[in-house]
């Protein structure tokens, strides 16, 4: 088991109190698994992704553990985490366009980063990997401003995976791209896994239709908790959680004329995470809610590899 997260809680500290963005999350990612992490804005998916590599100043680790390849990640200890970052856990950030220092040549910056992390040399490997994503080694002698957006994205992808991390977190990497670049990025991510450059991967996105193309499994989050995890095919074709069902039905389908039929949305809004209500958090928007939903349903396995947090999922 590459990654196993147990009852992880991460809260944001605000002036009005603690926002429970991640409130008791338990799941695991197998070796070689590409897991899509989907959810709407504010569902806690980015918080989860960040928690596994670097908590920012406002985030507080309120409980739970993260284990990677049998070692506990000290996620609350910024210094102790440094040892794991880049080597064990790595990140392709949402902001690839501005992730490189604008006043350093790319090759020099990577060299300085590697030297600072105690990894000497590596230039030959870097050039080989650039070639793998279709970039010539000339980009190492250029400044980020001299590269197109797509090239910068590929450079960042190469840099992030340079030390063959056990877990790669891709945080909304395709959000800012056009459809053809999205496809290229998805293919590259798949290539990283298939070439054995990264062991497992977590692809964070709000776009289920994209993650469906590359992910083995998809995990859906809602209001700081897990809703459903299933193999990608199953989750899209036979979802069991009412939220996932509505989410999937809100996706456009090929061959349907939406002039004739309006695309369905999910009425209502997610609850505030400042003082979230008890029980199932989807209760207020759920078409099948009943009395038992006042109690938090467990995230239980209803079929092999299919976990759902809903009383009516069986």
């Amino acid at each position: 088991m590459a990654l196993s997260v147990t009852d992880l809680r991460v809260y944001y500290q605000t002036l009005r109190g603690e926002v429970k963005a991640l409130d008791g999350v338990t799941f695991s990612v197998a070796d070689g698994e590409i897991m899509g992490l989907a959810g709407e804005s504010g569902s806690g998916k980015s918080t989860l992704a960040k928690s596994l590599i670097r908590l920012d100043g406002r985030m507080r680790h309120a409980g739970g553990t993260v284990e990677l390849d049998g070692r506990t990640l000290p996620i609350a200890d910024d210094r102790a985490m440094d040892e794991f970052r880049f080597r064990e856990v790595s990140l392709i950030p949402q902001y690839s366009m501005s992730a490189l220092n604008p006043t350093r040549k790319i090759g020099k910056m990577v060299g300085e980063l590697l030297a600072a992390r105690g990894v000497p040399g590596g230039t030959a490997e870097l050039e080989r990997r650039l070639e793998l994503v279709g970039l010539s080694k000339d980009v190492l002698g250029r400044y980020p401003i001299e590269l197109s957006g797509g090239m910068k994205q590929r450079v960042v992808m190469v840099v992030s995976t340079l030390l063959n991390p056990s877990l790669l977190i891709a945080d909304e990497v395709t959000s800012a791209l056009d459809v053809s670049s999205q496809k290229a990025v998805a293919t590259t991510l798949l290539g990283f896994r298939d070439h054995g450059l990264v062991t497992s991967m977590m692809v964070v996105t709000h776009d289920i239709s994209l993650v469906y193309q590359i992910a083995d499994t998809i995990l859906v989050m809602y209001a700081g908790r897990l809703a459903e995890k299933a193999p990608a095919e199953v989750l899209v074709t036979a979802p069991r959680h009412p939220y996932t069902r509505q989410l999937v039905s809100a996706l456009p389908e090929v061959g349907v004329r939406y002039e004739d039929r309006r695309l369905a949305g999910i009425p209502g809004n997610p609850p505030s995470l400042l003082n979230p209500p008890g029980g199932c958090r989807f209760r207020d928007r759920c078409p099948v809610a009943f009395e038992q939903c006042a109690e938090q349903p467990p995230f239980a396995e209803v079929a092999p590899g299919h976990l759902v947090a809903c009383w009516k999922a069986e």
Partner: peptide, 13 residues
């Protein structure tokens, strides 16, 4: 800045 966040996420000192 973003490049600082990225470097920090990669464990740069």
């Amino acid at each position: 800045a973003d490049y600082v966040n990225y470097l920090r996420a990669l464990g740069a000192p």
